[in-house]
């Protein structure tokens, strides 16, 4: 069996003003589309940021296809939240998508015809080719999200990590993204999506990671996505955990003690 595209072991993150993750442990099998779900403040985006190395974890190990991110970077594409960039930035749709190719360019190399072709294909897949020359400030929210996804597609990665791609998008975009997820699955790619809409989890994904500061459950939908685990994730029974999280933050505990 080949190594899992993403495996997280004993991940603990304490983060200023943001929730804490404790001892999160899971692996996403190859070729699956997985959703990370949990209530607001459960640490979903923090988990993704820690996985990408933007947040220094207090402890834990993250492996991509059995190796470090540094070694496997070309196989990993990350889609940040839409709100993380300034959409007034003077850049066209095409150039934004071309950024997806920068990872493979040498320092002084210019994007070649092949790179442009890849960007064009990616735009076509998300149905945005006709907007290629448009400046990004002239796009709707849903179109912006599609551009972000196209950029990730242009990376031609094997593992896609998306932070809330369905947040605040129109119906057409949501459909387009879902189609895309299917297509990626058909190509054998692995996709991990931070998701907030419980009603669509069963339709869009095959695998879930239920999170509320701790890992509540992870696995195939039919096993892990049960009323019981949902109740654990969203119910009030973890009150003590958040109270302790508050204390951990007060003490500024960045690392494990003891």
């Amino acid at each position: 069996m080949s190594e899992a595209p993403l495996s997280v072991r004993d991940l603990t993150v304490s983060y200023q003003h943001k929730p804490v993750l404790w001892d999160v442990d899971f692996a996403i099998p190859e070729g699956r589309t997985a959703a990370i779900i949990g209530p607001n403040g459960a640490g979903k985006s923090t988990l993704l940021k820690a996985v990408m190395g933007f947040v220094q974890p207090a402890s834990g190990e993250i492996r991509f296809f059995g190796d470090t991110l540094e070694a496997r970077r070309s196989l990993v594409a990350y889609v940040p939240q839409r709100s993380e960039v300034d959409w007034d930035f003077p850049i066209s749709v095409m150039d934004t998508v071309l950024m997806g190719r920068y990872g493979r360019l040498p320092l002084l190399g210019r994007p070649r015809a092949a790179d442009r072709e890849a960007a064009r294909r990616a735009l076509e897949k998300v149905g945005m080719l006709e907007f290629a020359e448009r400046q990004i400030s002239q796009l709707s929210g849903g179109q912006q999200q599609r551009v972000f996804i196209a950029r990730a597609l242009a990376q031609e990665a094997s593992l896609y990590l998306m932070d809330e791609p369905f947040a605040g998008v129109d119906v057409a975009t949501e459909k387009a993204i879902v189609e895309l997820l299917k297509e990626l699955r058909a190509e054998g790619k692995t996709v991990v999506v931070v998701h907030h809409d419980l009603s669509t989890v069963g339709d869009y994904f095959e695998h879930v990671v239920l999170l509320n500061m701790r890992l509540v459950a992870a696995g195939p939908i039919e096993e892990a996505f049960t009323p019981e685990t949902l109740n654990k994730t969203y119910g009030g029974r973890l009150g003590m955990l958040s109270e302790v999280a508050e204390r951990v933050r007060e003490y500024g505990l960045d690392e494990r003690t003891g």
Binding site: V244, R247, V248, Y251, L253, R256, T257, G258
Partner: peptide, 8 residues
């Protein structure tokens, strides 16, 4: 072990 020391 990490947390018990913080319990009030």
């Amino acid at each position: 072990e990490a947390v018990e020391h913080l319990l009030t």
